[in-house]
Structures are given as C-alpha cells and as structure tokens.
Nucleic acid binder design. Structure first.
Length: 600
RNA sequence: GGCGAGGUAGCUCAAUGGUGGAGCAGUGGACUCAUAAGCCAUUGGUUCUGGGUUCAAAUCCCAGCCUCGCCA
C-alpha cells in the first residue's frame, strides 16, 4: 500500500482575484509538494476550493449592487482559469457552495453538538429595522467611545486603534442605508473546545521537532496563554449554510467554522466523482496518512490549534454519520508549513489600491514556469519577502534562462547538429563521466530530502546547483573540441550530458512542470510526467458549479516511483530542440512598475 | 498591551559557542557548443543598537530599536 498524502490548501475567498502573494503563500508550495509525492508513486490528494460565504462576499456584493451568489460566480471560474494556466494541479478545486459541503458541514455541526462541545448564548447585536435583519459588525459605523472618531467601524477604530465592543458604539448607523440600528437580543451557538487543551498540547509537542519555528512556537504560545475559548459558530445571515436545527431559521454557520471543513468535504466529493465514495477514508481515517496544510501565517493558530481540536471533538462521529459500521477518528495534521507574506516593491500588497501583481494578468505576459521559478526562489518560507521586478528580471535571465535553459539548449542543439538528433551510444564511460552522473543522480536523494521537509527554496537551489555542475563538466571536456579530434570522446561527453539533463528535468518538474514536460517530449521519453486536471461543470440541488478535477484511473494510482535516475537508452532519436525559456528585455521592469497602483 | 517570528555583503539567503559563507549583481580573464548564454578568478560585511557571560559570541543572557503576524 503506497503512502497516502493529503495536500490541503487554504480556501481563497471568492471576493477578489488571486495575486502573487496568495500563489506563493499556499497554492504553489502545495502544488510543488503534490507533484513531488506523485512522482514518488504515493497516493496524493490535493484539494481546495472557493470560500463562497461570509461577510467578505456580502460586503463586495452590496458595494457592486449584485447578489453574493453573483460575486462568487464571478471569481470562482477565474480561480480555476488561473490554476489551469499556472499548472496548480488540484485533484479537486471545488467550492463551499455545494450540496455536498452543506451536508458535511451540517453533519459535523450535529456531531459536535452530540459530543457535547456546543453551547448556546444570548447576546445583543445591531438590528436594522429598515432592512429587517441583523447587521454584521462590519456593516455598522459610529462614533468611537475612546477617541471620538465619528467614522469608527463597530469592531475597531482605525483612528486610535482600539478594539471596540460593538454594542457600546456611540451614534451607530448602518453602512447600507445610514439608518440608525437598534440593539436586539439574539441567540447563537458557541463551540467550546477548552476541555481538549491538554490533548492539543500533546499533539503540538509530538510535532515540535519538525514544524517551522514560527508555526510551533506561536501555537504553543497560544495554547499556553490564551487557550481555547468558546467562540460563536453561528450568525444572523442568510448567505451561507443554514443551521440544521428547527427554530434556527435565518441563521447560518459562521464562515470560519464551515469553510475549513472543506478539506474533508472536498476529499469526499473527489472520491464521489471518481466513483468510490468510501475512498476518502484512506486519507482521513488512516493513522499513517500524512496531512499537509498550506496556509499563510495569518492562519496559523486556527489550523494548528482550533482545527485539530475540532477534529478531536468530532472523534469518529463523521464516519459514523456517513454510515460506516466500524467508524474511526479523523487524522490530525502532520505538518502545517505556513508561509510568511510576500510584499511588492517594498510595500504591502493591497488589492484595493491595485498594489498587486495579479496571477491572471501576469500570465498574459509571462510564461507559467518563469513565474513559478521566481515565486519559488522568493517564497516567504522563513520571513517576509519582496516581489521586485528588477529581481524577477535578473533571476529569469541570469538563472532560469542562463543556467538551466541554456544548458538544455546548448547540449541538445549541438547533438542535433552533429548526430542528427540521435542520442549517441558511447563506448565505456570515463571516470569524469561517471562522477558527474553520480553527482547528478545523487540529486534525487538530496533534493528529495529537502522536498520532504517542505524546504522548497533550498530544494530548487540544490537542483539549480546541479545544473551548474553540468555546465562546468561541459567546459572541462569541451565537446566542440572533442568532435574535431576524437568523435568517440565527444559521444561520451554528450551522452553523459543528455543523461544529466533528463534527470534534472525530472528533479525540476515539481517546480517547472511545463518546461520539464517539454524536455520530456523533446527526448521522447514516453508517458507524460503528470496528469493535469480538467475543468468540468457539475450539478447539484444548489445549482451548477465549475470544478477543476483530475480523474484518476487504477493505472494512474499505481504508477511506480519515478524519482530515480533511470537510465537513458542511447540510439533513440529526439525532436528538434528549442529554447525552453524566454529571455526578458530590461524594459519590462519600468513597464511593470508603472502598472503598479494604476487604476484599472 | 500579551504571544510569536524576523533583522547577516548592493539584492536573496546560509552559518546553533571555535578563522562570518553561497548564489546573483560588480570587476578582470581565457574560450565559443549555446538564448552574448556557459567557465575561471576576484572586490565587497561595525552580523540592528547598547551592555553582559566566556579563552572565544551572528550564535547564550539582559535592555532597547525596527518589520511582520496572531490575540486583546
């Protein structure tokens, strides 16, 4: 039985397009790891989806004068388009607005209630008589009771920075129509997981040795100081998942509570779509299964403390509700390699000020692997990083094009010219050839170890350093001299170099899937490296929604370990080579900088 | 205000008590298969600041400054 790996990626809010910070923060690192583990022949399931609910969406809808559904339906397909073009290889990218997700989230709510983790509480909230509904905090403005600022939000005053208690706000007014709201009592469910604190502490301590310092220390700090406090999980909203209880009409599950369950519901949906619903248990109920969560640092304690506590609180309840006779408990996170933030040209990325590099827009002008390369070398693994167009330009031209792209092109072009595109069959290889092959072949081990630890920058740097080794080797032998004096010597050099390139293209394929596949095809190495997802439209009681789906057959899931230095067969003809990457003109730096902050 | 992470060469980052390194940029050189790419050599540092411990501190301790996140 191959190792099972769940790659869970934070669900993006469907109220804005995705920018480079979102990509490098979670989608790209998740994809790189998923591709690596697939090459190892492991059973990988990579899931995420659009977070369609919550006030982030309703506010956008009110601004635009459209329904929340329309907001979600605008952004969701754009996410899917971006992932397709950028090669983010989801097994399933779905949404929280599906019948399946509603069902799972409601079942989990009931399970937590049955297991004794839910309590109810009555509080006062602002109610709009004109709109006949409760107003979320972000919909109410008024005068700050600390500093007198007349335009304070009801939850926080921007001017003095104080956090405000909404009901104490002076002269409140509705952001929707300016009318004066009144305080009304309302009852809500709260999740109380405080009893699970000791178990969470143990869970964290067991993982202390290999988690990123930021993640483990912040989580331990949180459990040791604040702890797990009762938190509301329902709201007076009509856009979302209804509370599945009689007498609770008009109330929905709080978005933070239900969206995270997408990691579960999406796994179940994928298995359904592949015709084996019970298969989700392989990833979620098998104690050997490893669950990786790719998130940004703003989400750490939620994923490392609250979510594991929920999973513990659910126990075997979900499996039981889904009809399993021998129900099992859910698997806790194996690793949560949270990334820090990516800034842009020295400033925080801000969508509203258009201080952003948008994924879809950047793909209009740059190749996906060029973007993926820069987003990996500048990935905020240990501290905040900066997207800098000059740096992007330099890295693309001096590293990606010069070191790797040029290596492939110089060797294959030379071979094409002198051997008519047939990989030469060398006589006995020399000591130096064997040493190079040993060095490059050893990269599978070295790069692989770094990928296992989710040190992606380091892994890519290691692979690139190996490409430099091949360049050095070529200069040492100079096949362009050898061919003039002793063709057989040149054949040894060229065979060795092509072998090294074939291996490097596999090693680089998690990072650069498009160009690695191109090398794979030029060398005519057979089956594609990866199966890429397709866009599909599916129907349920809530309507139709687009998904990004990879359907896997039995043979796909039984592919062997390909993260190995497999021997290249000489004497085979390959295709006409071409440059893998585009060298950029320096003028793009100014052009791109001029775009920043501009009104679209 | 509390918790946590980070601050090292122009840039991106290594270095967990033992002579501060690498890649890129810069500079010089020989070469020409290749996208004027590659290769060789080389300049460059008050390790945020101030104290302390130690034979020895980027590293350990104390205080402060700056950036970021979470919570209040």
């Amino acid at each position: 039985m191959p190792e099972t790996i769940l790659i869970a990626i934070a669900w993006p809010y469907a109220n804005s397009d995705i920018h480079v910070g979102n990509i490098t923060g979670s989608h790209l690192p998740g994809d790189i790891c998923a591709r690596y583990h697939r090459l190892r022949g492991r059973k990988v399931l990579m899931v995420s989806g659009s977070d369609a609910h919550g006030t982030a969406i309703t506010i956008k809808a009110d601004q635009k004068g459209v329904s929340p559904m329309e907001v979600y339906q605008h952004y969701h397909p754009r996410f899917i388009e971006l992932f397709t073009k950028l090669g983010i290889s989801y097994d399933l990218f779905t949404s929280t607005h599906t019948a399946n997700h509603f069902d799972i989230a409601q079942k989990i709510f009931i399970v937590l209630k049955e297991n004794g983790y839910l309590i109810t509480n009555i509080s006062k909230q602002w109610y709009s008589k004109t709109q006949k509904r409760f107003l979320p905090d972000r919909y109410v403005e008024g005068t700050c009771y600390y500093c007198g600022n007349e335009d304070a939000r009801s939850d926080q005053c921007e001017q003095c920075g104080h956090v405000l208690e909404a009901e104490k706000l002076v002269s409140p007014r509705s952001k929707l129509d300016g009318s004066t709201p009144e305080l009304r009592e309302t009852e809500h469910y709260y999740l109380d997981l405080s009893g699970l604190e000791p178990k969470i502490k143990t869970f964290l301590q067991e993982r202390e040795s290999y988690w990123r310092p930021l993640v483990i220390n912040q989580s331990l700090g949180m459990i040791n100081t604040t702890g797990l406090k009762p938190t509301p999980i329902t709201r007076d909203l009509d856009w979302g998942i209804p509370v599945p209880l009689e007498g609770w009409e008009g109330k929905c599950l709080y978005v933070w509570f239900e969206a995270v369950m997408g990691y579960l519901s999406a796994a179940i949906e994928w298995c359904d779509l592949n015709g084996n619903r019970d298969a989700w248990r392989d990833w979620w109920l098998n104690p050997e299964s490893k669950c990786f969560y790719y998130i940004g640092k703003d989400n750490i304690t939620f994923h490392a403390v609250t979510w594991p506590a929920e999973l513990l609180g659910i126990r075997d309840g979900l499996d039981r509700k889904l009809g399993s006779p021998d129900s099992k408990a859910l698997v806790l996170p194996y690793n949560i390699p949270a990334n820090e933030f990516m800034n842009l040209e020295g400033r925080k990325i801000s969508g509203s000020q258009n201080w952003a590099v948008w994924g879809l827009d950047a793909l209009e002008r740059y190749d996906p692997d060029a973007l993926r390369y820069y987003l990996t070398v500048a990935m905020p693994e240990t501290r905040d990083t900066d997207w800098d167009w000059e740096d992007f330009f330099q890295r693309n031209n001096n590293e990606l094009v010069a070191t790797w792209g040029n290596l492939v092109n110089r060797v294959l072009s030379f071979t094409y010219k002198h051997w008519e595109g047939i990989i030469p069959a060398p006589e006995k290889l020399r000591e130096s050839d064997l040493i190079l092959l040993q060095t490059i072949g050893g990269g599978f081990e070295k790069v692989g170890q770094l990928l296992e630890k989710v040190e992606l920058r380091g892994a890519l740097a290691e692979a690139m350093a190996l490409a430099t080794e091949v360049n050095k080797y070529l200069d040492m032998h100079g096949p362009w001299f050898e061919i003039k004096t002793d063709r057989k010597e040149a054949e040894k050099t060229i065979y060795t170099a092509i072998q090294a390139i074939a291996w490097l293209s596999v090693m680089l394929s998690p990072f650069l899937p498009f160009t690695s596949q191109a090398v794979h095809e030029i060398l005519d190495l057979g089956e594609p490296l990866f199966q890429e997802p397709q866009v599909e439209e599916v129907q349920d009681e809530l309507g139709s929604h687009q998904i990004l789906l990879t359907r896997r057959t039995e043979s796909d899931s039984e592919r062997s370990d390909r993260w190995l230095p497999n021997k290249l067969v000489p004497g085979r003809k390959f295709k006409q080579p071409y440059p893998l990457f585009k060298k950029l003109d320096h003028k793009i730096v100014e052009e791109e900088r001029d775009r920043l902050g501009a009104k679209s």
